[in-house]
Amino acid sequence: METVYGSMRQHGLVRPTQGRLLGGVIAGLGQRFGIDPWPARLLFVLILLAIPGSQILIYPILWILMPSEDAVAPVTPITPQAPVA
């Protein structure tokens, strides 16, 4: 799962901590494509009206797959080194 999070984070697809309404998915997509959150939400609703149901499946999947902006990156273990005398 870390490779999915890393790939999405690398491409700028993260759920922002500021400006979330529900899960931050639409705000994150808007941020990635340079759209403010409210027009992105409006576009999401318009697409939902045009193609009902598809977004209801896509939103929870993206909510699970998109990392949060404040998520801590995995820590790599540090190997202790012998003191230099």
Rank of each mutant, 00 (worst) to 15 (best):
M1D: 01
M1N: 02
M1Y: 00
E2M: 01
E2C: 01
E2N: 00
E2R: 00
V4P: 02
V4K: 02
V4W: 00
Y5F: 09
Y5H: 05
Y5R: 10
G6Q: 14
G6C: 04
S7I: 06
S7D: 05
R9G: 03
R9Q: 02
R9S: 05
Q10E: 07
Q10K: 08
Q10R: 07
H11S: 00
G12P: 03
L13K: 03
V14S: 05
R15M: 09
R15Q: 10
P16V: 12
P16S: 10
T17I: 12
T17P: 13
Q18E: 12
R20D: 04
L21P: 06
L21H: 09
L21T: 07
G23Q: 07
G24D: 01
V25I: 10
I26G: 02
I26D: 00
I26K: 01
I26P: 02
A27Y: 03
A27F: 00
A27R: 04
G28Y: 04
G28R: 00
L29A: 06
G30V: 01
G30D: 01
Q31C: 08
Q31L: 13
F33C: 01
F33A: 02
G34Q: 13
D36Q: 07
D36A: 11
P37F: 12
P37A: 12
W38D: 15
W38R: 15
W38Y: 15
W38H: 15
P39S: 05
P39M: 05
A40W: 02
A40L: 03
R41K: 13
L42F: 12
L42W: 11
L42E: 09
L43W: 09
L43E: 04
L43M: 11
F44Y: 11
V45D: 08
V45E: 08
L46G: 04
I47W: 14
L48E: 14
L48W: 09
L48M: 07
L49W: 12
L49H: 11
L49G: 12
L49R: 14
A50N: 06
I51C: 10
P52T: 06
P52D: 07
G53Q: 08
S54L: 10
Q55T: 04
Q55M: 06
I56N: 06
I56M: 10
I56K: 07
I56W: 08
L57G: 13
L57A: 13
I58G: 04
I58L: 09
Y59H: 14
Y59E: 12
Y59L: 15
P60A: 14
P60F: 14
P60T: 11
P60V: 12
I61S: 09
I61A: 10
L62M: 14
W63R: 15
W63D: 13
I64P: 00
M66K: 07
S68I: 06
S68A: 13
D70V: 14
D70L: 15
A71C: 08
A73G: 04
A73E: 11
P74G: 01
P74F: 01
V75E: 15
V75K: 15
V75G: 15
V75F: 12
V75Y: 13
T76K: 02
T76S: 04
P77S: 06
P77E: 03
P77A: 03
P77K: 05
I78Q: 15
I78S: 15
T79K: 12
T79L: 13
T79I: 11
P80M: 04
Q81P: 13
A82Q: 08
A82C: 06
A82F: 12
A85R: 08
A85T: 11
